[in-house]
Structures are given as structure tokens and as C-alpha cells.
Write a protein that binds this DNA or RNA. Structure first.
Length: 531
RNA sequence: GUCCCUAUCGUCUAGAGGCCUAGGACACCGGGUUUUCAUCCCGGCAACGGGGGUUCGAAUCCCCCUGGGGAUGCCA
């Protein structure tokens, strides 16, 4: 059978970075196997799902190159199939209508199967014994078993689980007498004909059974049935719940591998049983570790950085973000990091995915982005940078000249905003560096001298600039090379930038001269007012 | 509370009992090239959470502890 995977997000706002990483892994896996990558939009939460969120999602996927196969499935369109599936299960005795809450309608519950000899995902693990709190009666009816165990301090600890978790269950009183045997009454209980409330139980014994499966990433995982409750399929208002919809849709779409976040591990046990109840073999599962923020916590709304749109807006390249995200929890096994999509597709296997959460390191992402930017074709770089230029793009030719100088220095297109000094005399000045650089009197004298020279010189050349700077250094007793920084600062307001000679040539001699004089004046004023 | 998952430099990771004196990358710190910025090159700092086993030998297997995460919904 061909491999089919799906990405099944809920469109309830921005696209989270962890979510899109799930999409990336699904996509890489599908492309690696030559399988299908489907998109299913789980929009059943009508209150939170919006068209805008769907558009945002689609935009993000397109931006990252996550092309999907076939048509989008909207989960709301499958509602009838979901309800039909629930009815089918009810008819077979695999589901039941539970007592309605006050004033409400009956929800439909899935019954964890009591008897399922052909279901190979459940096995016995051996006899179990539980100490019970005698003051809490053990309640047994067709929805399950409720009781209280005893805490270390002797307090009752309420617990409830499905009937199927307690095969061969016996309840005992303090003297060791058997008060109740589940097996003797099970038929009537399952049919809802009888329910029990047994007092003074101090001990329960039963045959523990567990459901298990092989997770491609996490290995064998299991959970005892006495820790699982029957689960709701259809709400009181008649709407299907996530678990049902999810499984039914996966059946409809013939999904063979489910790759999703870690937080679904616990759901998987119940989903596997739903597949069984619907007459299908469960697909393969692979649970991805979470992405956490720099303090090791899951991203919350405060970590604004966690949305794909934010990264795009700050000037990260889709290729870089894709590459970086793919490396969070996965590695090709050799020392490669910067990889093309094709290389990632070829190297990608789920077996190589780690199973511990990973922190997003914005430094490393920035570095990778810079590497991708550095190798962009120049025309593309200019076009991309232009989108971040704001109001100083007017001078198109000038912008291109600056861009040529800056490409190797940009790590994130948001930095394009700092190019302003090339085009406008109204630029920010790095205050701290400013004071430090202009403190020596001889530097200020030298700058004054340079301003004069720049003002009266004709056409600027690199040679002339270097000569005049050297001359200034020598004449005013400044160590070789130490005049560059103050000059850069007075000309551009920044401590870093492109080659200084080229920068000055682009800005122009007289303009630079004016800037130098202006900032020298500012310095004088600040010093005199400060003293 | 209970259950489950998880643990290698600050961060992402390599590591399948001997190839490990633990490798790579980012960050950081030196040095070189460039009279400045960035790139580039060279070097350095830096980790197997703790304790017990198993073994001739443990980062690797087992147990306990601790830390982190998740689940326990008529949310998805």
C-alpha cells in the first residue's frame, strides 16, 4: 500500500512553529517515501475556527514550500460520516448513549471493548491488586467503575475507568470475604440492566490488561486499561468530538502513517481502539517531541516569536527556517546541517527523529539565515531587501549599490532598516559608542580636519581617502587605524557597517563633512551641559 | 495525586558496549588576513544530571533518585 500521511491542523489563529514543524516532518517523510501528503483542516471547533486562520495557514505552507497532494479536506464536511460511524458502533454494542446531564441531551460514548479476542493490541499483563478506601463505595454500571484508592496519608483518591480494565475483578471486605465478582454480573451491567454500589470494600483484585503499540520514534508504548475511561464520541448537542472525527477521517483518507506531536501519545491508545471498532487496522504512529522556548518551557502566547508569520516578518527566509526547523529533533546522522530540501528528503527517516524536546536557538537560526542570504543571487537579494527598506527605497540605483555592499553582512532582512544613513541625514546614533569614540581631543581635531578635506575635495577615490586618513592620523598623533571607528561613527552613526571608504564614497564627501561637523557640535554641547 | 515520556558542551546534535583522550555546528573567547565593519582562516573554552548494579570493559544495558515535559475535558 502506498504511504499516505496528513497534516491536520486546527485553524484557530496564528500558525505555531511547532505545528509547522509537524507539517515539515510529514512532508519530508511523504516525499522521501514517494507517498501522499494530505492536508486536512480540522475546523470542527466552530467557535475558534476562522477563515482568516485558514488563509494564514495556507499562506505559511505555500511560503515554506509545503505542497500537499489532492484537495484539502475540511473536517466539517465529514460530519455525517462521523455521526454514521458512531451509530454503527452503537448498533454493534461498541458505543452507548450515556445518561444526559441536567437539561441536556445524551452524549454517545465509546466503550473500551470488554471482549475482543481478535484485537491484537491488547494483552494481559498479570493479576493486579488495589487497596481501596472503605468509606467510598465502589460504583459499577455500564459506563464503568468508580472507586477510591488510599493515599499515603490515608485519604481517599477517587479513580474511575472503563469496565474492560477490570476483567476477573473481585472486591473484598476487611475480613477477606468476597463482596462482588464482576464477571458474574457483566452481561447485565453491559446491557444497562443492573448497576451496583458496594460498600466497605478494602481490596480489589483483577486481571490487568494493557493496550500497546509500536511508536516509530518512541518505541513500544503501553497503557493499562484500568487507567482509561470510556470516551465521548458525540456531544450532547450532537456534534462529533475530535477523537472520532480524527479517526474516521484518517480511515476515509486511507492514512497509513500518523506523524504528530508528542501531546497525542495518550490519545493514541484510544484511537487504536476506535480503528479496531470501525473494522480497520490502525496506522503506524510516530510522535514528535515538542519545541520549547529558551527557558525550556513550551511556547506560550508571550513568546511572540513562536509564530511562522513573525519569522517571515522579521526577514527570515523560508528555506532557512525550513532547514533549521528540520534540524530540531532530527539530524541526517552525519555532520551536514545546511542542506537543500532535496538532500533532506533523501536523508529523512522517522527512525532518526529524537524523542526529547528541543529548544529553539535563535542565534543558530539567525546564522543559518545569514548563510542562505549570503548565497542569494544579487537580484533576488535586492528585491527581497527592498520589501524591508521602508521609505528610503526611492533612490533605486543607490539602494542597489548599498545592497551590494551589505549582502554579506545581513543575517535577517529586518536589518535593512539600519541602512538608512546611506540615504538620509536623519539617522540614529549609537550613544554609548559615540561618547567613547569622541572622547580624545586629538580625535575630534582630526575629524575636524577630515571634514575640511572632504568638503573641498573633488571626486572621491579610495586612494585619496586612505591617504587623507593616514595623514590625519600621523598629524594628530593617532595610532594607525584608530581613526576609522570615530570616522565611521560620525558619518553613519553606527559602530559597524560596510567598508568605510565605499560607505563614504556612496554618501558623498560634502555630506559626510556636514555630518562630522554636526556630530562634533553635538558632542561639545553634551559635554558642556554634562559638566 | 496518578500514569506516561525524556535526560551528551550554554543551545542544536553525533554516538546502537571497546572505534571516545566523547565528534560537528551555533554562541562565546583568543590569534591571523583586511589600517575600520563583515566575511574568511587558525586556535581555545565547554558536556555524558546523581547514585547503584551488569560486564574484562558502560555515554551506550538494568534499577533508584533528581530535573524537564506530557496526559489525566461534552478542547483539539
Amino acid at each position: 500500500m502506498d504511504t499516505v500521511v496528513r497534516f491536520a491542523p486546527s485553524p484557530t489563529g496564528q500558525v505555531h512553529i511547532g505545528n509547522i514543524r509537524t507539517a515539515i516532518f510529514n512532508w519530508l517523510f511523504a516525499r522521501h517515501c514517494g507517498g501522499c501528503f494530505l492536508l486536512r483542516i480540522e475546523d470542527t471547533d466552530l467557535e475558534r475556527s476562522t477563515r482568516q486562520a485558514i488563509d494564514t495557514l495556507l499562506e505559511c505552507m505555500e511560503w515554506l514550500g509545503l505542497n500537499f497532494d489532492g484537495e484539502i479536506m475540511y473536517q466539517t464536511s465529514q460530519k455525517e460520516a462521523h455521526i454514521k460511524a458512531a451509530e454503527q458502533m452503537t448498533a454493534k454494542g461498541l458505543a452507548y448513549a450515556a445518561p444526559a446531564p441536567e437539561g441536556g441531551q445524551s452524549p454517545i460514548f465509546f466503550r473500551i471493548p470488554w471482549d475482543c479476542p481478535d484485537f491484537t493490541s491488547i494483552r494481559e499483563t498479570g493479576p493486579a491488586e488495589l487497596e481501596l478506601h472503605p468509606e467510598t463505595p465502589v460504583k459499577i454500571d455500564f459506563t464503568g467503575v468508580g472507586f477510591s484508592t488510599v493515599s499515603k496519608k490515608g485519604a481517599p483518591m477517587p479513580a474511575a475507568a472503563c469496565l474492560a480494565g477490570f476483567r476477573q475483578m473481585k472486591l473484598y471486605d476487611g475480613a477477606g470475604n468476597i463482596l462482588f465478582e464482576l464477571e458474574k454480573n457483566i452481561d447485565d451491567i453491559l446491557q444497562g440492566k443492573q448497576s451496583f454500589s458496594i460498600n466497605n470494600c478494602v481490596k480489589m483484585t483483577f486481571m490487568r490488561r494493557e493496550i500497546f503499540y509500536q511508536d516509530i520514534i518512541k518505541g513500544e508504548l503501553s497503557k493499562p486499561l484500568d487507567g482509561i475511561k470510556d470516551l465521548i464520541l458525540i456531544r450532547g448537542d450532537g456534534s462529533p468530538i475530535f477523537h472520532l472525527a480524527n479517526v474516521v477521517d484518517d480511515i476515509t483518507q486511507n492514512v497509513t502513517h500518523i506523524i504528530r506531536g508528542d501531546d497525542h501519545v495518550e490519545n493514541t491508545y484510544r484511537h487504536i481502539m476506535l480503528f479496531y471498532a470501525l473494522g480497520r487496522k490502525a496506522p503506524e504512529y510516530a510522535h514528535l517531541p515538542m519545541i520549547v522556548n529558551s527557558s525550556g518551557k513550551p511556547y506560550s502566547k508571550r513568546d511572540g516569536d513562536a509564530f511562522v508569520g513573525d519569522f517571515r516578518q522579521k526577514g527570515f527566509l523560508a528555506e532557512a527556517l525550513f532547514n533549521y526547523l528540520a534540524l530540531l529533533g532530527w539530524s541526517p546522522g552525519d555532520d551536514r546541517e545546511k542542506m537543500t530540501k532535496q538532500e533532506m528528503i533523501e536523508a529523512f527517516t522517522l527512525e532518526r527523529v529524537k524523542s526529547a524536546p528541543a529548544q529553539l536557538d535563535s542565534n543558530k537560526l539567525l546564522n543559518m539565515n545569514g548563510a542562505y542570504i549570503a548565497e542569494m543571487p544579487f537580484e533576488k537579494f535586492v528585491a527581497y531587501a527592498g520589501k524591508f527598506a521602508g521609505d528610503f527605497l526611492n533612490d533605486k540605483a543607490g539602494f542597489e549599490q548599498v545592497a551590494r555592499l551589505m549582502q554579506s553582512r545581513v543575517k535577517q532582512f529586518g536589518q535593512v532598516a539600519t541602512w538608512k544613513y546611506f540615504f538620509s541625514d536623519d539617522f540614529p546614533v549609537d550613544e554609548k559608542v559615540f561618547k567613547k569614540q569622541l572622547t580624545p581631543a586629538e580625535v575630534r581635531t582630526a575629524l575636524g580636519f577630515l571634514a575640511g578635506e572632504l568638503n573641498t575635495c573633488g571626486e572621491l577615490t579610495k586612494e585619496w581617502l586612505h591617504t587623507i586618513i593616514s595623514t590625519a592620523e600621523e598629524s594628530f598623533g593617532i595610532p594607525h587605524g584608530k581613526l576609522f571607528q570615530p570616522l565611521r561613527l560620525t558619518v553613519s552613526g553606527a559602530a559597524g557597517g560596510a567598508e568605510l571608504d565605499e560607505t563614504i564614497m556612496l554618501i558623498g564627501g560634502s555630506r559626510c563633512a556636514a555630518r562630522i561637523l554636526r556630530l562634533l557640535e553635538v558632542y561639545q554641547k553634551e559635554v558642556s551641559s554634562g559638566e
